[in-house]
Design a protein around this nucleic acid. Structure first.
Lengths: 361, 361
DNA sequence: GTAAGGTGGGAAAGCGCATTCCCAGTGTCT
DNA sequence: AGACACTGGGAATGCGCTTTCCCACCTTAC
C-alpha cells in the first residue's frame, strides 16, 4: 500500500504541509478560499487518500470500534452487529470484528488486538461465563480489559459484566432484564398450562442461561408451581436438538402410558434461547411429534429467523439491534455526557407454539 | 487512548528502543536471551501493548482486511462473513466491516475508508449491479477501486466484477457459477414438473439475479420447454412475499377454474435466492396454500436458516463460507503465489418443496 | 502615526514504531 | 599475531500526519 502523501499534495499546490492538512482534514483554522481550492484540486489530481493510521497516530484517536461476538453468522449476534454497525456509522467510526466462539482466551486476545489498534471503544456481546474451566480465561480477559480501560478505552458489555473486571471508568454494562422477562414468561405460561415444565438450559455458569433459568423458576414459584426440571446442554441449536430427541422419547412413552389411563398432559418446554428452542422443536418434529399438540415450547430472544419458523414460536422479544446500538453509544460517549441510559426492555410474545393449555379435542 | 510506549519499556529495561522493538515485535535479529528476558518483563510490568497504528505506519502494512456486505444480518452475508473472518484469522489479520445496503455510493465510501486505513485487502460481497440508476455510483466505485489497486491494494469481489473496474493487478473475482447451476436446477425440475414455470427475480440489472434467471431459462430451453414467466421484485424476503401474495391469488383462481374442468396443474416457482423463496413460501402459506400440494418452489444459495424452514426448500447449495474464505485468501496472496484458484462449485439440492410432479392424490 | 490586536501562512516538533547504518567486541583462519 | 568476518547492541532516520509555535502582514483604534 503506497499512496500519495499530504506533503506531495502540498508541494503540488505550492503550500506547506500544515496548510494542506488544514484544508483537507478539517481543522479549526480555515485557510483562504483560493489556497483551499488549489490544495483541493491538487489532492484530487493526485488521488490523495489520507492515511488514517498516521492521523490516528498524530491525534491519538483511531475512529475504530471493536466488536466481539461468538459467531457472526448466529442470528442473535448478527442482529446485534447490525445495531452496532449502525451506531458506529452515526459516530463516523468503523467496526473491527472479532469472533471468539465465546472462549475467554480468544476474547482476551481480541481485546488485546483492539487495544493494539487503539480502538476507541470495544463492545462485547455474548454471554459471560462463570464456569470453573473459564476462570483463568476470565481473569486474563478481565485484566486485559482493565488495562484497556485504564488507558482510556471505553468498554460496553451486553448482559453481564465480565467476571473480575474492576474498572469503574469507561466500563459500561448494558443490562438485559433476562431474569424478569423469564419470570414473566413463566407466569404467562403457567396461567394456562397445567402440566410439567422442562427447561432446556445452557451449561451451568453461563450468565444469560442461568439468569433466564432462575427467572423462569421464580415465575413458576410465584404462581405456586413446583420448579421445572432443568436439562443442561450446549447453548446452540444442536444442543437443543439433542435434548429435544430425548424429550421426544419421554413424551412418547408417557403418551403410550396415558393412552390406557385417559388424559395426556403435555409438557411445556422452555429453551433459554431461540436457537435452542428451534433445535428442540426440530427434534420433536423429526420424531413425529407435533407442537403444540404433543408439547408446547417457548424460546427467548425473538431472533429474526423465527419469523419463518413453524409453528410460530413463543418467545421473549428482545430489541437486539437496539441493544447493539445502545452498547455502541454508551461506549462512544465522551465522558461528559451523563444522559440517563435508556433501559433495555423486552416483552413476552406468545405465539402458537404454546397455544391451548388444555387442547380442545 | 494512552498507553505505555516502546521507549518506556526500553528505558525500564535499560536497553535501546531498537533492541526492545527487536525482542517484542519479532524481527530477524534476536537479541541475547538475558536481554530479551529483561525487556519482556519490563513490558509485562508496564502492560505494554504495541501500537499497531504506529507499526503499520512504520512498515506500511496494516494487517487489516475490509469486508463490504449489504447487510450483516442477512444469513447469506453472515455466512460469507464467517468465512472471511476465518481466513483473516489464518492470515493474522483483522476484519473491518462495512454494510452498504448495496448502494454503490456507500460502497465507494467504504472503499475509501478502507483505503484510508490502508487495509491490505478488500473483499466485496453482494451482487453487483448494472442498473441505470447505479451507473454513476458504479463509476465512482470503480474509480475508487482502481485507485486502491493502483496503490497496491488487493481486491476480491464475489460473483461479478464491479462494472467499469479496469484494474488488472490486485483485482480478483471469485466466480460463482450462478448460470450453470440455475440451468441445472431448471433441468432437474423440468424432468418431473410439467406445468407452468414462474421466476421471481430481483431488479433487472442485478447480476446475480440476471445470471440465475438466464441460466434457468436456458435450462428450460435445453429441455425444449418454453421460457418461464419472470416477475421482478426486490431482492429481499419482503419482495418475495409480495410476489407470493400475487401468485397465491392466481393459483386460487386457476384452481377454482380447474375444479370444474378436472386436473389442476401446479405452477413451479423459482426464486432467485433463498430469502425471496422463503418470503414467497410464507405468502402462499399465509394465503392458505400448501407447498408442494398447490405449488412447488425452489430457491438458491442454501442458506443455513433454510434448515429449519418447512417444507424443506429445494435450492442450489453454494459453499458460502468457502466463498468468503477463498475471496479472502485470493486477496491476501502475496503476488507471487500463482496457485490455481480452486473454482467454486455448488450443487442442486432437491427437497420436499418441489416434490412429486404429479401429486399422488 | 504608532501600538495593539488579528489573520493567514510556514517551520518544526512530535505521535510510536521499524529499520538501516554504524560501532565495539568476539572469535576464526592463515 | 594480524586480518577477517561475525555478532549483538545503539543512534538516528523516517513512516504521514497534526499541532503548537512563530512570524510577517494587515487592520483597527487611539
Amino acid at each position: 500500500m503506497v499512496a500519495s502523501t499530504l506533503s506531495e499534495v502540498a508541494r503540488l499546490a505550492g503550500v506547506s504541509p500544515a496548510t494542506a492538512s488544514r484544508v483537507l482534514n478539517g481543522s479549526a483554522r480555515k485557510p483562504g478560499p483560493d489556497i483551499a481550492e488549489r490544495v483541493r484540486s491538487a489532492a484530487e489530481s493526485l488521488g490523495y487518500v489520507p492515511n488514517a493510521q498516521a492521523q490516528a497516530l498524530a491525534k491519538s484517536s483511531s475512529g475504530l470500534i471493536g466488536l466481539i461476538v461468538h459467531d457472526i453468522a448466529d442470528p442473535y449476534f448478527a442482529a446485534i452487529a447490525r445495531g452496532v454497525q449502525e451506531a458506529a456509522r452515526e459516530q463516523g467510526r468503523m467496526v473491527l470484528l472479532a469472533t471468539t466462539a465465546g472462549a475467554p482466551a480468544d476474547e482476551r486476545e481480541a481485546v488485546a488486538a483492539f487495544a493494539a489498534r487503539r480502538a476507541d471503544s470495544i463492545v462485547i456481546a455474548g454471554s459471560r461465563s462463570a464456569r470453573p474451566e473459564d476462570r483463568q480465561g476470565n481473569a486474563g480477559l478481565a485484566a486485559e480489559l482493565d488495562r484497556y480501560c485504564r488507558n482510556g478505552g471505553q468498554v460496553a458489555v451486553v448482559g453481564h459484566g465480565v467476571v473480575g473486571a474492576a474498572s469503574t471508568e469507561g466500563y459500561h454494562v448494558v443490562t438485559v432484564p433476562n431474569e424478569e422477562l423469564a419470570a414473566k414468561l413463566a407466569a404467562e405460561l403457567a396461567a394456562s398450562h397445567h402440566g410439567h415444565f422442562v427447561i432446556i438450559g445452557g451449561p451451568a455458569g453461563l450468565f444469560t442461561s442461568d439468569d433466564r433459568i432462575r427467572g423462569f423458576q421464580r415465575g413458576l414459584a410465584d404462581t405456586a408451581l413446583p420448579p421445572a426440571e432443568i436439562i443442561r446442554t450446549e447453548f446452540t441449536r444442536s444442543g437443543g436438538f439433542d435434548v429435544g430427541i430425548a424429550l421426544a422419547a419421554r413424551i412418547k412413552a408417557s403418551q403410550a402410558a396415558a393412552n390406557t389411563s385417559g388424559d395426556t398432559k403435555r409438557i411445556c418446554i422452555f429453551a433459554v434461547n431461540d436457537v435452542m428452542a428451534i433445535g428442540a422443536a426440530a427434534a420433536l418434529r423429526a420424531e413425529g411429534l407435533r407442537i403444540p399438540r404433543d408439547a408446547i415450547i417457548a424460546g427467548f430472544d425473538d431472533i429474526e429467523s423465527l419469523r419463518d419458523f413453524r409453528p410460530p414460536l413463543s418467545t421473549v422479544h428482545l430489541p437486539l439491534e437496539e441493544i447493539g446500538r445502545q452498547a455502541t453509544r454508551r461506549a462512544g460517549e465522551t465522558a461528559g455526557e451523563n444522559a440517563v441510559p435508556p433501559a433495555i426492555t423486552g416483552h413476552v410474545t406468545l405465539r402458537r407454539s404454546t397455544e391451548g393449555a388444555f387442547p380442545a379435542p
